[in-house]
Computed example of a mutant assay.
Amino acid sequence: MKYTRQFSLITIVNKEPVYQAFKKNLDTQENVDYELIKIDNSANQFDSARTAYNDAAQKAKGEYLAFLHPDIRFLDKNALADILNEIKKLPNLGVAGIAGSPQQLVNNDRQILTTIVQGADKEAVGTLINKSEKVQTLDECFFVVKHEWFNKHPFTECKGWHFYAVEQSLIALLDHKDNYVVPARVWHTSAGASEDYHYVLIGRQMVKKYGQYFPSINTTVRKWDTKGLKANINSLIYLVKRIITTYLRN
């Protein structure tokens, strides 16, 4: 396939005003050769992020595919260019993004490595980095893969709207690639809390599918232990809590 652009920016749109604000901010970015692919999901045309992104990737003309949420805002005119130029330099690239979690634990818990701010108050959300760092998994808000690699490893058929960047990160590691988080001057305008019971159900699927290869699956939301009865019981308890919370909200 001949790539005619350096980057394809792909985003799923559920609310048009959010997308228009995203696009207005994106239009301020300089020194980036990209195409923007909007996936309209305003009428729930897709039943999973993976299906939607796979469909868009088939149309993409970029050498790199960047999947990002429309609630991302770049904090200065060179923010996007600096992110993407840093990613282009990374060796043995699997998945790269702006927030991630390494395999190494701190006090038996996962770490979040990022420089982004989040939510209405622009709060810091993790351990700051000043250079690219290797991680186990990347957050879904913004992540990048090479188009050539993605053609060999598209998103799986797992349904739903969670863990797609995490799963892609695990697939990359199993393919002997390296995953990275890079410094980014980015504001993720949402609070990032989306772990309803569907999130837990898919998390349990990920543990079942990939747990034999990793002692834990570390995400920016939580650490998922993969071994033993205790890990299974803990995730079941988490599932019940999420179901109760969802029920009370409704």
Rank of each mutant, 00 (worst) to 15 (best):
K152A: 12
Q136N: 13
V144S: 10
L174S: 11
I171L: 04
E123G: 04
I129G: 05
F143W: 09
V166C: 10
T156C: 12
F142T: 12
L128C: 03
L174M: 09
E133P: 05
D178P: 01
H147C: 15
V145K: 04
G126N: 06
S169P: 14
K146C: 13
K134C: 08
V135K: 01
F143L: 01
T127F: 11
K131F: 06
V145F: 08
V144H: 11
Y164N: 11
V181F: 09
F150C: 02
A172T: 02
L138D: 12
K152H: 15
P154T: 00
F150K: 03
K152Y: 15
K152I: 13
H176N: 10
V125I: 06
D178V: 00
T127A: 13
K177F: 03
E140I: 00
F155C: 02
P154Y: 00
E157S: 14
L173F: 11
H176T: 07
E123N: 11
H176S: 05
T156K: 13
T137G: 08
H162W: 13
S169V: 13
L173I: 14
F142S: 08
D178C: 03
K152M: 14
E123R: 06
L138V: 15
K152P: 15
K131W: 13
F143K: 03
L174I: 14
V135W: 08
V181H: 10
K131R: 04
I171Y: 01
V166W: 01
I129S: 09
L128D: 07
K177T: 05
L174V: 08
P154V: 03
K159F: 00
D139C: 00
E140Q: 01
F142D: 06
K177R: 12
F155R: 03
N179V: 02
T127Y: 07
F150Q: 02
K159E: 03
P154R: 00
H147V: 08
A124N: 15
W149F: 05
Q136D: 03
T137S: 06
L170A: 01
N179K: 01
A172F: 04
E133A: 03
W149M: 03
W161K: 02
E148D: 10
F155V: 05
H176K: 10
C158N: 11
V135P: 00
H176Y: 04
G160F: 04
I129M: 09
E140C: 00
T137F: 07
N151V: 09
F163P: 10
K131E: 15
D178F: 00
W161T: 01
I129K: 09
V125K: 09
Y180E: 02
D139V: 01
D178G: 07
V181W: 11
E123P: 06
F143G: 09
L128F: 08
G126E: 14
N130L: 00
E157M: 10
K146G: 14
L128W: 06
H162G: 02
N179C: 05
K146D: 15
T156M: 12
A124L: 15
F163I: 03
V145C: 11
A172R: 12
S132P: 06
G160C: 10
